[in-house]
Amino acid sequence: MHGGLAQGIAQALWEEAVYDDAGTLVSGSFVDYLLPTSADTISFEVDHTTTASTTNTLGTKGVGEAGTIASTPAVVNAVVDAVRQFGVNDIQMPCTPERVWRAIHAGDGDAATEGAAAPHFEEDAPNRDEGAGA
């Protein structure tokens, strides 16, 4: 589970196959193709729902990749949400420091502008829009 979560988060923040204009893979080694280690990820709290599979006799299910699926959009959405007040409504994965910086500078600085991302959380959620312009 932890590995799957780390893989999904890595896709959101680090892992990228970069090609140059001639079609050569330039992130071809782990010097350039970034993988997180335990120093880069967070502690996970894992909970369980228990529903036996009905399609095999043991009632078992695969879980290894469960964490990869939702963790990627969760992190990207968190990054975009963090800079919404600068008028940012999308950042291409992986959300590198440079991409976030460019998105902030390309933004129109007004989250209320038409076309900003539709809120995907409770309108009265805490901390949203605080520190605009900071």
């Binding site: 923040l13 970034l34 280690t37 120093a39 590198t96």
Partner: peptide
């Protein structure tokens, strides 16, 4: 030092 992942060369 500013890095994207730990133990990397600095940006």
């Amino acid at each position: 030092k500013f890095v994207r992942v730990a133990h990397q060369w600095p940006i």
